[in-house]
Design a protein around this nucleic acid. Structure first.
Lengths: 262, 262
DNA sequence: AGATATTTGTTCGTATGTATT
DNA sequence: TAATACATACGAACAAATATC
């Protein structure tokens, strides 16, 4: 097994930390540098703990804390056993969105903020799919729609149906050839899912919403099948507008409830 | 100081791990749950290491690794000394983007992918600023423009000027009242900055680009000053189209160079 | 200003678990 | 199965930082 040719630590004998950075985070940074400097690709192996200990002249726990941090960021994953160790990993979408979501936990955006973006991006995203969907893709989309093509039997199913409606958009975003566009669309959906106000909106029973949402999505699938890009764009845009309008009236109602309660 | 009333660990005596999750990660997850469950806000203090050791029945190193991971995600920051400990932190934009950037390190998007989004979002972002900029804001923007309103003296300044042009957009995004829109615009700029192909493009001397970019930005500032929303939109859109066209020809050229070299 | 208490930060040595060969 | 190579976890001891008296 050929280890990557990594420059030796050129800065080993330093007293402790350069600019107040704690040792483990410093080591984490240097490991990241090491990954990009050596052009390591996902699957490539990092030096083992013992060697890192030697290289950075740090104890096992310190190395471990640094490695743990990289793992939490999804940059590496570790395996035990011989030939095991830390491996570079491509950070998956779900993890990236989770990390990103942390930024909006405390200062939550409003419905209008999110839909301002969705109205611009979702139509574009859907349009980019025209003529690129396979039979398998259509099957996947139809399977998702089937989850909410009927009246929900109870509150639990109602809630699941709402999430499935978002999943429909997530599947589309996954298929988007422009990875950045797909990611941002997925992120906005994720943001909606996690918005506390949305959680309460989704909790309210609402037969009309399901009906109209379903309608848009069936028409969208038809337009995609016809490879009618203009129609795809229009339908998705109208869908977003309708959804925003509904969500905003709900938001206002809930705020009203909230005010009455105090 | 009243500690948050946190439920005691209901699952302490388990053998080791639930579904293969390492102990520190598991503890990290539980700490995150604890933050949302107790509705802790930035600045609130988490239990100290000693108490966490007792609560999770884990050693100091293990707790420390978990805390280190949260810290790497920007969720907490720690202070030493009496009254010190781990405190909930609102993660800053820069950190969030850095984490997010990791997702696109290996599978880098193309110029066209990024500009497809910028063309849609930057005009909207700029339009949302109309009538909201203070004198101080204009001063900040003008200061940024001043960095590249003249011929660069050398290659180093040339490169700095390119980054300053992106900074101009970053300042605008910072000012955007829709925080999500501002964030996404900033993220796209960040993506460009870190794209290896862009780095090489920015390295090439190019007097014409500076000239036309400057022109767009001066006109944009004027339109913002006139509160002419339609003009702001148009100018920004054209600016993006011009930038994309330039970047794509450069990209093609560089690829040509690259092919010739082998 | 200085001593002290409190709390995180770092290290070492050791023991144990786990996957590969 | 046994040997091996590696990660995982622990606990004790010491170092550094910082608030408070």
């Amino acid at each position: 097994m050929t280890e990557p040719d990594i420059d030796r630590d050129d800065n080993a004998g330093r007293p402790s930390s350069p600019r107040g950075a704690r040792r483990p985070v410093e080591i984490g940074e240097r490991l990241k540098d090491l990954i990009v400097a050596n052009d390591l690709k996902p699957g490539d192996r990092l030096p083992g703990e013992r060697e890192l200990m030697a290289r950075f002249k740090a104890s096992k726990s310190t190395i471990r804390e640094a490695l743990g941090a990289l793992q939490a960021q999804g940059l590496v994953r570790t395996r035990t056993g011989p030939g095991g160790g830390a491996f570079v990993a491509a950070i998956d979408k779900a993890r990236a969105m989770e990390l990103l979501g942390n930024h909006f936990v405390f200062e939550q955006p409003g419905i209008a903020d999110i839909y301002a973006l969705r109205k611009l991006l979702e139509p574009e995203m859907a349009a980019s799919l025209v003529g690129r969907l396979t039979g398998e893709d259509f099957r996947r989309l139809n399977d998702t729609v089937r989850l909410y093509d009927h009246q929900p039997a109870n509150r639990g199913e109602e809630y699941r149906q709402r999430l499935a409606e978002l999943d429909f958009h997530a599947v589309l975003a996954d298929l988007c050839p422009n990875r950045v566009l797909g990611f941002v669309c997925g992120f906005l959906q994720n943001l909606l899912r996690n918005l506390s106000i949305c959680r309460r909106i989704y909790d309210k029973p609402n037969p009309a919403l399901r009906e109209t949402g379903l309608n848009y999505q069936v028409r969208l699938l038809a337009a995609l099948n016809d490879k009618d890009e203009a129609a795809v764009r229009t339908i998705m845009y109208e869908h977003m507008c309708a959804a925003q309008e509904y969500m905003e009236t709900c938001e206002a109602e809930l705020r009203g409830d909230f005010l009455r309660l105090r």
